[in-house]
């Protein structure tokens, strides 16, 4: 009896320590995020005082002559983001549905690792392929003055986002109970009607999370856009802006951070851009969270 007791005590002691370690690493990530935000705010916030507000929304970004308008950069990032979403979402969800619902088991085992390999292609390699292959192709096929455009960036970033969307879509479709599909098919629905009307809506929260994380990957991507979008800080105008060069926020930080003197106005502006990027991904994550949360709530209500 005695020995058993000490044994249990010992076990709970190790358990206690392990629990603390896991707890500590959990809190550590919260600490990291708050330290990063604090650092960004500390370095970037003074820019609001050093640069007049209306010049932030001016037309030029040319820091070596103190033109600090971040407006063209924000719009440039949004242009590329929208383009990449249009490329990545249909292809990504389609591939996810195909792998999860349609393809036979042997092909599934072959396709899944391939998609994961696509996710592992370094962005600089993607940019290199872009410069050598996609840029000349786009210039010739659309008869544009240059192939270094937002559209080129959108296609390549779409590729970069597709693996994320495919994996998460596929996972969430897999969690849909088989009984849903059987019920739908038993009611006389075709396989396509089953996917579109029963399986996909049941996995909706996962699919929306997939799209949001894909967009998050796009907005933060740097190397590829820097290589293929031309980096001209022009304010995009109208629909044809997708076929014109743009400069994104990430490319601006990456190409100018190495040169800038610590504490200067230019330095503060680059951190302000960092804050804006941070807010962008925060909003995307909050939307993804709210969407999945709301749908869980409703399904709970239906079940009760």
């Amino acid at each position: 009896m005695d020995t058993l007791f000490t044994h249990v005590r010992k076990k709970s002691k190790t358990e206690f320590i392990i629990t603390r370690i896991i707890q500590f690493s959990g809190y550590l990530s919260i600490l990291y995020v708050s330290l990063i935000s604090l650092f960004l705010i500390k370095e970037g916030f003074p820019a609001i005082y050093s640069v007049p507000f209306d010049s932030v929304f001016g037309k030029y970004w040319y820091p070596i002559e103190s033109y600090f308008s971040i407006w063209p950069l924000i719009l440039g990032s949004i242009t590329v983001m929208i383009g990449a979403t249009i490329v990545a979402v249909p292809l990504g969800i389609g591939t996810g549905i195909y792998i999860s619902e349609i393809t036979p088991q042997w092909a599934k085992e072959f396709l899944k690792p391939l998609v994961e390999i696509l996710a592992g292609v370094p962005s600089v390699v993607l940019g290199f392929i872009g410069i050598q292959v996609i840029v000349p192709f786009i210039r010739e096929s659309f008869n544009l003055p240059t192939g270094l455009t937002a559209f080129t960036g959108s296609i390549l970033l779409g590729w970069a986002a597709i693996p994320t969307i495919v994996s998460i879509t596929e996972d969430s479709l897999n969690t849909v109970p088989g009984s849903y599909r059987q019920a739908s098919l038993a009611l006389g629905a075709t396989p396509w009607q089953t996917i579109w009307g029963a399986t996909l809506p049941a996995a909706r929260s996962g699919v929306i999370t997939a799209v949001m994380l894909g967009i998050g990957r796009v907005i933060g991507e740097t190397m590829t856009v820097m290589m293929v979008t031309g980096n001209a800080p022009v304010v995009p105008q109208g629909f044809q802006a997708i076929f014109a060069p743009v400069r994104t926020m990430t490319a601006t930080i990456a190409s100018e951070m190495g040169e800038v003197a610590t504490g200067s106005v230019h330095y503060q502006m680059l951190f302000l851009i960092g804050i804006i990027l941070f807010l962008f991904s925060l909003i995307i994550n909050i939307v993804a969270y709210l969407v999945s949360f709301r749908i869980v709530k409703r399904s709970e209500r239906l079940l009760s």
Binding site: K59, Y62, E65, Q132, R139, P145, G230
Partner: peptide, 26 residues
Amino acid sequence: KSIFSPTTLLLPSSEGIISEVRDNPH
């Protein structure tokens, strides 16, 4: 105090400039 036209493409490397000039008659 004149500056580059904002439509100027700013490329991160010499290689980028050479390959675009090589391929593009514009």
